[in-house]
Every structure is written in C-alpha cells, then in structure tokens.
C-alpha cells in the first residue's frame, strides 16, 4: 500500500488534490481511498488530506501517519507544521516552490527523493488562478511514477468544467515535464 499525505492551506484545493489522486489511481486499476483531515478550517488555515493506493481493497481508516509520499502545496508550511513527520526513508517529497530543492536545506530521512515545482506559477499561467493543487499532481506523477498522466487527465476531466479542466491539465502536464527533468529531483543521502 502506498500512502500519500498532502499539506496545504484552506482554499488551495488540498482535499480536491487527494480526491483527484485517488480517482487517477482508481482509473489506473488500483484501489484507492482519499480523505481529508476533517476540520472546520477556513481559508488560509493549514489543511491535510490523505490518499492511499493499493492493489488490494483498503480497509484501514486511520490517518496516514507514515507516508510514502508528501505533497506540500504551500512552502510556508515548512516553518509552521511538522510536514515531514513519519515520512519513510526512500519516500517522496514534492514541494510547491520555484526554489532549488537543495536550497531548502530540509532535515529529511535517508534516500528521500525530493523535488520542487513552481506549481502556483504554472497554475497562474494555465488557469489564471493561483491554485496549485492539480499542477502538483502532475509533478507527483512524474516523481513517483505511481499514476499515469493520462489517468490524471481523465480524473481532471471528470472533476472540472471543460475550460478549467483544460487549464488544469495543461498545468499538470507542465509540472510533469518539469519534475521529469532529472535536474529538479534531488535524492537525499544520509
């Protein structure tokens, strides 16, 4: 079972991202489960959502405490929340920032594959709004290889009206291409 945790802020589409990820996984023939860290958070408050992907039916309901992958939708959370809590060694970490992964100087478990992508900028370019969630899923697809870009595109098309879907898909493809470039990925060594 692969477990992902998505950190962001209310209004950034954190819950939608987890849902889309689960739909893309489902469309790829996996079992998937997405759920938010249930709260009454208002716009701007830290929000967490989870996604499990497995080849067997998923029964557990506990929150993801030991994620295989993390998506950080807002880089300012790195100073506010212990986002990397429980991240396994050899896991994945994708951060929404234009900065180079090395410059972030994050304390991380061994062998974590770290990538950054300027998802907010990509979202502004392609959909005209600074909502980075879908673009980051494109980056996530490239980083983990867990879901296909086409399954993601189909999930996006299911979720959004055509114009917004097209923009989001373009942003996701751009982020995919950016993360696929080996220069943006950075494996930590212990």
């Amino acid at each position: 079972m692969f477990q992902a945790r998505i950190h962001g802020r209310g209004g950034q589409g954190v819950v939608t991202a987890a849902e889309l990820l689960s739909v893309a996984a489902f469309r790829s023939g996996h079992h998937a489960q997405a759920f938010p860290s249930f709260g009454s958070e208002r716009t701007g408050a830290p929000v967490v959502a989870y996604c499990r992907i497995s080849d067997a039916p998923i029964r557990t309901r506990e929150p993801v405490v030991a994620p295989d992958a993390l998506i950080v939708q807002d880089v300012t959370l790195l100073r506010q929340v212990d986002v990397t809590s429980g991240l396994r060694s050899g896991g994945y970490l994708l951060i929404n920032t234009a900065r180079d992964p090395v410059d972030l100087a994050l304390p991380l478990p061994a062998e974590v594959l770290l990538a950054t992508v300027p998802a907010t900028e990509l979202a502004v370019t392609h959909i005209g709004r600074p909502v980075p969630n879908v673009a980051l899923l494109g980056g996530f697809a490239a980083l983990t290889g867990l879901i296909g870009l086409e399954a993601l595109a189909a999930a996006i098309a299911d979720r959004f009206p055509p114009q917004l879907a097209a923009g989001n898909e373009a942003a996701a493809r751009a982020a995919f291409a950016a993360v696929e470039d080996p220069e943006v990925r950075h494996a930590t060594a212990d």
Binding site: A18, A32, A34, F38
Partner: peptide, 12 residues
Amino acid sequence: MDGFILTHAVEE
C-alpha cells in the same frame, strides 16, 4: 455512517 471518516472519504 461515521461522519467525515465515511461521509467525506472518496473510495470505490
């Protein structure tokens, strides 16, 4: 049905 845990969970 468990609130949030089921109502807000996306699954098949």
